[in-house]
Write a protein that binds this DNA or RNA. Structure first.
Lengths: 227, 227
DNA sequence: CGGGGTCTTGAATATCGTCAATCGGCGTGG
DNA sequence: CCACGCCGATTGACGATATTCAAGACCCCG
């Protein structure tokens, strides 16, 4: 399953940061005094690249973001989809171990990593919050790994349920990402994703309004698939 | 791929904790004043179970530990193997989201979760360390997910290289875990693991001294597989 | 030596991947 | 306003990789 990714090179440095900045009162963490600047990224624009210095931490304000790694032969693994409210880009090391791109037009709060860490040193609330976000991400990652041992049908079901929950519109999902993105997240091919969705639709577990607008007709059936 | 797991019920409560305790100066984190008690678990003994209250944090002193989750139909996913020096059992929530068992006879340092967190509140070094352990675990989990999209040969190669590094005996690994454990970690069946190892052996990439004692004859070949 | 668990090997099958063609929605421009 | 073209999604036929089911070998411990 080899998927070569077109790279839209819209990386940002200091200059870009200053360019797209909006004054903001939005906080990285709730109730915690770490401010930042907001930036908007176009569809498929790179937010950061694997190996780049991890000087900033991000929070999705609107739109959606994919984090991914690419193997030497072009296979791409999407490790997470980040939706509004999600914090991302926090790394254990000095460098980003994955890349991040806007899936659609996305606005993101950008905070200097050092600001967060300094704040954590003197304020245990910030430290606690920082830890709990990382721990939650760990849990998500473990759930993701759990997905990857399941059958195609189960993966799709779990994906739809997850998206439905996170997008918080009960019984309906408007997917921001392409079939290819879904495939790379679930460790499947685009064809298998498409076929499996068609199957679920034929069994009237789901219903398509459009290819990315899906009604969950039978959520309990999806849950059963979610072994 | 259904693997029902025999459960050796050797869970521990307060009583067990007090029973197996050894006085110890060993620290949970390096250079950080959070002590604890050590306990020894027999092969296949449960250290904690999914859903149990996560009151303790652990560090492997000797032996090895598997952390895993079981799906309703019996499929088991091993999320991590913990070797001496590894901290495990830290959870974002109140409950353990996975189970942990000793793979072989294992001695483990046990520290009250509350002690660690209280210490983190007043000591930013502890807080930093706590975060960095969690973040490192996140990175490991992401690497694990990356494994699961590869071919069987690539997964086995990556696994052997990882174990070789972590066991720190260059060019040779003595595996503590069974083929079934490896299979459940790599998202393969025991037969595929066995066959793939045989293949690597036939291509003289590796050499068996015994089924769990393996010489890495050609590490660069393994690295190439590690796409 | 014997027995139980672990591991290996074999043959048949199933699921998912690959390759290829077509469909369909959408924006653009004539 | 309709036609064209493009990109994303679907569908089909075929093939490969890993699973399943089954049998037997190996090995350690008693």
């Amino acid at each position: 399953m080899i998927t070569r990714t077109r790279l839209t090179n819209v990386s940002h440095g200091q200059a870009a940061l200053n360019a797209g900045v909006l004054a903001t009162q939005v906080q990285l963490f709730d109730n915690v005094p770490v401010g930042g600047a907001s930036m908007t990224f176009e569809r498929n624009a790179e937010i950061y690249g694997e190996g780049e210095s991890a000087d900033y931490v991000y929070k999705v304000l609107s739109g959606s973001v994919r984090a991914y790694r690419v193997l030497s032969d072009g296979r791409r693994q999407i490790s997470a989809f980040h939706l509004p409210g999600d914090v991302f880009g926090i790394e254990p090391g000095k460098e980003h171990s994955s890349s991040a791109e806007a899936i659609d037009k996305a606005t993101v709060l950008v905070v200097r990593r050092s600001a967060v860490f300094n704040s954590a040193d003197s304020n245990s609330d910030v430290a606690r919050h920082l830890w709990s976000i990382t721990a939650a991400e760990l849990k998500r990652s473990q759930n993701h790994a759990l997905l990857l041992i399941k059958t195609a049908k189960e993966r799709i079901a779990a994906f739809l349920l997850d998206m439905s929950e996170r997008l918080a519109v009960k019984g309906f999902v408007e997917l921001p990402m392409s079939r290819q993105d879904i495939a790379d997240y679930l460790g499947l091919t685009i064809e298998t994703v498409s076929r499996t969705l068609t199957l679920l639709s034929e069994g009237s577990t789901i219903q398509f309004l459009a290819s990315r607008r899906i009604v969950l007709r039978n959520a309990s059936q999806l849950n059963e698939l979610n072994a």
